[in-house]
Computed example of a mutant assay.
Amino acid sequence: MDKDNLMQGVIPPEPPIKAQSGVHELKSRLEWGEPAFTILDVRPRNAYNDGHIMGAMPMPMESLAERAKSSLAPSRDIYVYGETDEQTAEAAQSLRSAGFEHVSELKGGFPAWKAIAGPTEGIVESQAPKDQEVYNVVTQLQHHTDTQKNLRDN
């Protein structure tokens, strides 16, 4: 019996990536430690440098498809985010048109990620004081609920 058959059914497979994902889904995959996905930030380079989701790769919109094709497998799970949900959708469509099979638009982008205290890096992010409230689960849940309500209302 080979190793793959032995492990089958022991470790549940990840569900297929959705066309749109919330930040909690991405954070869950990061916390699980799953290495088989890529996060792309398509915002301008200065925005990326100021702050981005930890581990995200910068790929500006104007060269997105070409750069992705030269560095990523077409079957790779890709989460993409831009400055707006509209830019995110445009980037996802560009990747899908270039042949990428598993692309998910990260709804709410970087602001939504920060709202759930997801890990960040960047020049501005490294200088921001860490709020004690980040460690308060009740405060974070209330903040997330308020943020999601605001996103739905807008």
Results as ranks from 00 to 15, higher is better:
residue 4 D to E: 08
residue 5 N to H: 14
residue 5 N to F: 08
residue 5 N to I: 07
residue 6 L to A: 15
residue 7 M to H: 07
residue 9 G to I: 07
residue 10 V to P: 03
residue 11 I to T: 14
residue 11 I to R: 13
residue 13 P to K: 07
residue 14 E to V: 14
residue 14 E to N: 14
residue 16 P to N: 10
residue 16 P to D: 12
residue 17 I to Q: 03
residue 19 A to S: 13
residue 20 Q to W: 12
residue 20 Q to Y: 13
residue 21 S to V: 02
residue 21 S to Q: 11
residue 21 S to G: 09
residue 23 V to I: 11
residue 24 H to Q: 13
residue 24 H to M: 15
residue 28 S to Y: 14
residue 28 S to G: 12
residue 28 S to N: 12
residue 29 R to H: 13
residue 29 R to D: 07
residue 29 R to G: 04
residue 29 R to V: 10
residue 29 R to I: 11
residue 30 L to H: 05
residue 31 E to T: 14
residue 38 T to M: 12
residue 42 V to F: 02
residue 45 R to M: 13
residue 46 N to Y: 12
residue 47 A to F: 09
residue 52 H to Y: 11
residue 52 H to K: 15
residue 52 H to N: 07
residue 53 I to E: 00
residue 56 A to P: 01
residue 59 M to C: 04
residue 64 L to F: 03
residue 64 L to M: 06
residue 69 K to V: 04
residue 72 L to V: 09
residue 72 L to W: 00
residue 75 S to N: 15
residue 76 R to L: 09
residue 78 I to D: 00
residue 79 Y to Q: 03
residue 87 Q to T: 11
residue 87 Q to P: 05
residue 88 T to M: 08
residue 91 A to E: 01
residue 91 A to G: 02
residue 92 A to P: 00
residue 92 A to T: 00
residue 93 Q to N: 15
residue 95 L to N: 01
residue 95 L to W: 01
residue 97 S to E: 08
residue 97 S to I: 00
residue 98 A to F: 03
residue 101 E to R: 13
residue 104 S to D: 04
residue 108 G to Y: 02
residue 108 G to R: 02
residue 109 G to E: 01
residue 110 F to N: 00
residue 111 P to C: 09
residue 112 A to Q: 03
residue 113 W to D: 01
residue 114 K to W: 11
residue 114 K to H: 11
residue 114 K to P: 03
residue 114 K to G: 10
residue 116 I to G: 01
residue 117 A to W: 07
residue 117 A to M: 05
residue 118 G to Y: 02
residue 119 P to D: 12
residue 119 P to E: 15
residue 120 T to Y: 04
residue 124 V to Y: 08
residue 125 E to Y: 02
residue 126 S to H: 05
residue 126 S to Q: 09
residue 126 S to P: 01
residue 129 P to K: 08
residue 130 K to A: 07
residue 131 D to N: 14
residue 132 Q to S: 06
residue 133 E to G: 03
residue 134 V to H: 13
residue 135 Y to A: 11
residue 136 N to M: 06
residue 137 V to R: 15
residue 137 V to C: 03
residue 138 V to D: 15
residue 139 T to P: 00
residue 139 T to R: 02
residue 140 Q to L: 12
residue 143 H to G: 10
residue 143 H to M: 10
residue 144 H to C: 13
residue 145 T to P: 04
residue 147 T to Y: 15
residue 149 K to E: 10
residue 149 K to W: 08
residue 151 L to P: 09
residue 152 R to K: 14
residue 153 D to R: 14
residue 154 N to C: 07
